[in-house]
């Protein structure tokens, strides 16, 4: 049996999700035993146009990157969006809150009109091509990555949690961060991270995106209880691919 061929591509991002693959440490050797990684620019020099599974990291911010992504989609049997930039645009979508010409001038001043500095509205991968699977998180969790890839190689559909971070946080017995006056997004954000941030005393800031059908009424109750309103919560949600109303 020939091994499935995996190719990993990066667009606008910090490459922190690729780093999580490296961070599998010894387990990466097990992955290499069952699949051929034919392209992965950050770690290997080999390159290939023939692959079965394409893993996409990063968000799409330029027209030429849309063309490159569509080309990859045509060649791949399965396409995976890896990490918050790919699954929902990630932190790069903060740019969409501003007028893009003004953004360019802010950073490049008098040189803003130089053609190679052009930029477009940030898009998640599924705003450009069809995505078969999403690996959530900023960065993604390496164990979840291994689980999803393993499932796909075995022909199974991976199961991703459809309940909020609060479930995992409560199960760990953490004190609620709302009691510490932190606007924690745990009630509406997808679990699967093991509530890592609240477990370290820092509020959930939504890097895995909204859970399917978030219980908005419950979230409102929490917000009411602490004398805030839903707008306060929204100011914290805007960091990761949420609705992009102007903030300034």
């Amino acid at each position: 049996m020939t091994k499935p061929r995996i190719a990993i591509f990066d667009f606008a991002c910090c490459e922190g999700c690729q780093l999580q693959i490296v961070n599998l440490e010894e387990d990466i050797l097990s992955l290499l035993a069952v699949a051929d990684v034919v392209e992965w620019r950050e770690a290997i020099s080999d390159q290939s146009d023939e692959y079965d599974i394409a893993i996409i990291e990063g968000s799409i911010t330029r027209p030429e990157d849309e063309t490159r992504l569509k080309d990859i989609r045509e060649k791949a049997k399965v396409l995976i969006a890896m990490g918050a930039c790919a699954t929902m645009g990630g932190v790069n979508k903060l740019k969409n809150n501003f007028d893009l010409n003004e953004v360019k001038e802010c950073v490049y001043a008098d040189d803003a009109e130089m053609p190679h500095l052009n930029t477009a509205m940030t898009k998640a991968v599924d705003e450009v091509v069809t995505v078969d699977f999403k690996i959530h998180g900023c960065p993604m969790d390496k164990a979840e990555f291994a689980y999803i890839v393993r499932s796909l190689l075995l022909g199974k559909t991976p199961e991703i949690p459809e309940y909020p971070v609060c479930v995992e946080c409560k199960a760990k017995g953490n004190p609620c961060l709302w009691e510490d006056e932190q606007l924690c997004l745990g009630p509406v954000i997808r679990a699967g991270c093991g509530a890592r941030c609240p477990s370290s005393g820092f509020r959930c800031f939504g890097c895995r995106g909204y859970v399917d059908n978030p219980n908005v009424d419950a979230a409102k109750e929490v917000v009411d209880k602490y004398g805030l309103d839903i707008e306060d919560l929204k100011t914290k949600m805007v960091l990761f691919g949420s609705t992009q109303e102007p903030t300034v």
């Binding site: 910090c14 922190g16 780093l19 911010t61 809150n97 501003f98 802010c106 930029t119 100011t235 960091l239």
Partner: peptide, 29 residues
Amino acid sequence: APRFFEAMVRGRSYEDIQIIVSRICGICS
């Protein structure tokens, strides 16, 4: 592809800055 972090952090709270700018780089976050 440029990402324009300096423009994107405007309007954000001093308590959120490190969470945003750590995303500049996965290796040196």
